[in-house]
Structures are given as C-alpha cells and as structure tokens.
C-alpha cells in the first residue's frame, strides 16, 4: 500500500524549545543567513516555532506552535509553479525539485503558511563549517526556493533499506529530524495510510485540527489542541 506521510503536532506537549529548528538546520543543510540578512526578514527555517501572546501582566498567556510545510493535499503552491518545481509526489508530499526551480517565488506567495524559504544569495558555510553538511541532501544555491521535505532523504533511505530486506516499513522505523529531536514528543511522524500507526491514532483525536483548515488546503500536518487541566479526561 502506498504511504501517505503525515505529522501530528501536539500543542499540549510542545514546550517551544526549538530543538526541532536546529535539528532541521543540521539535517537539511538549511543555512544560517547572518545578522544583516536576518534583520530584513530573510532568516531561513523550514520549521519555525510561532509564539502568540494573549492578555497582559499579571495574566499573560503564551502559546507555542511549530509551523512547517503542511504538505497539503490541495496545495496552493503546486498549481502556480510554471516549471513543476513544486509538484505533488507519488507519496503525497509537496515536492520541491530544486534543479527545476527558476525562482519565480510564486509558490511562496501562494503558500498561506509562509513556510517556504528562498535563497536570496548563495548560502555560505565558512570553512570548515561546510563539513557539517549532510551529504544526503543537496545544498541549494542562489535563486532556489526550498522548504520542508518531511526529510525525504530519510524516507527514501528507509524505503531502500526495506526494499533491500524485502519487507514493509514499520511504524516508528522512520521519522523526521524534527520529530526525532523532540524531547516532549510533541511531533509524531508516520504513515497516515497505516491505521495502526501512532500518527493515524493521534490524527483522529478529538483535539485534532488543521492549521487554517477553512482554506481547504487539506494539510497532512495535524495539530492537537492544547486543552486545559480540567479537560484532560475528555480527550
């Protein structure tokens, strides 16, 4: 059976520690851009932790919410790309073929979640920082749009491994770098087509919601509402 990769973000578990952000930097060769570029809004993060405030002292409230590519089934980014650099992969991911990208940035405008990062310049890793680069992931050059791939290199290598061993992928055998690093297990990755996977189970929770679900983008990332102390017994 074909896989349908999904991620569940349990907002009640997320502590806003941003381990996922660094994990993604490391795993996917996402560059740091430096102070001057960050100052004009060009910091690149495939996953970011949004925080929102409500209320004021002495009763302020804060929520953390990791936002990454929602891997929409009806992705606004895919239709608009004139060269098929953004496209729907066979496993239902929003693929990004870097080599095919000419940098119209249309996809980034179309994306309601603003999760696409653009290489305004060639990324630089001052020697020997270049040695940290993950050889399984390409380094994107200037003018290319990039985004969360659900760590497609991990998916591919797990699939190749399973194929070599002539077996199916097991739930939990494969996870994304962000979910791997998440200490409080707020991020859970897996196959939504496997009804017994942890991610399927969580995605059907009554706390589940889609980010801006009303837009009809059909995301494969599901958020579990934070809930309150007293509500716990209902979930």
């Amino acid at each position: 059976m074909a896989h349908k990769w999904g991620l569940v973000v349990d907002l009640d578990r997320c502590t806003g520690c941003e381990a996922c952000v660094v994990a993604c930097h490391a795993e996917n060769n996402v560059p740091t851009v430096g102070k001057d570029q960050a100052a004009i809004g060009r910091a690149m993060q495939w996953i970011r932790v949004e925080r929102s405030w409500e209320g004021d002292f002495p009763n302020p409230k804060v929520r953390f919410q990791p936002v990454l590519c929602q891997q929409c089934d009806a992705a606004p980014c895919e239709a608009v790309c004139p060269t098929y650099a953004s496209y729907h992969t066979e496993e239902g991911l929003n693929g990004q073929a870097y080599n095919r990208c000419i940098g119209t940035r249309f996809c980034a405008n179309a994306c309601p979640y603003t999760v696409r990062s653009f290489n305004f310049f060639n990324p630089s890793w001052q020697k020997p920082l270049n040695l940290q680069l993950n050889p399984d992931v390409s380094v994107r050059s200037v003018g290319i749009m990039e985004k969360c791939t659900f760590c497609v290199q991990r998916i591919k290598s797990a699939e190749i491994q399973a194929e070599a061993e002539k077996r199916d992928l097991k739930d939990g055998e494969l996870t994304t770098a962000c979910a791997q690093s998440c200490a409080s297990k707020a991020l859970v990755f897996g196959d939504l087509n496997d009804p017994n996977s942890e991610v399927s189970r969580l995605a059907s929770s009554n706390r589940a919601a889609k980010l801006m679900g009303e837009l009809g983008t059909k995301p494969n990332v599901t958020y579990l509402d934070r809930g309150a102390w007293q509500d716990a017994k209902n979930s």
Binding site: A19, V22, E27, L131, N134, A177, S181
Partner: peptide, 28 residues
C-alpha cells in the same frame, strides 16, 4: 554530520536540545 540523543541513555533517551545539537558547530 549530526548529533542525536543516544536512545539507550537513561537521561535523554534519544532526545537532544537545540544547544546540544549545535555541538557539531563547536567541532567545525
């Protein structure tokens, strides 16, 4: 290429914080 938590370790059970993962950049 990457630092992850050691899964057997009783303290961090395979998990690692942001700072810990950046230990890679101490090396390079």
């Amino acid at each position: 290429k990457r630092l992850e938590g050691s899964p057997q370790n009783p303290i961090n059970a395979g998990k690692l914080c942001a700072r810990g993962q950046a230990g890679l950049q101490v090396l390079y």
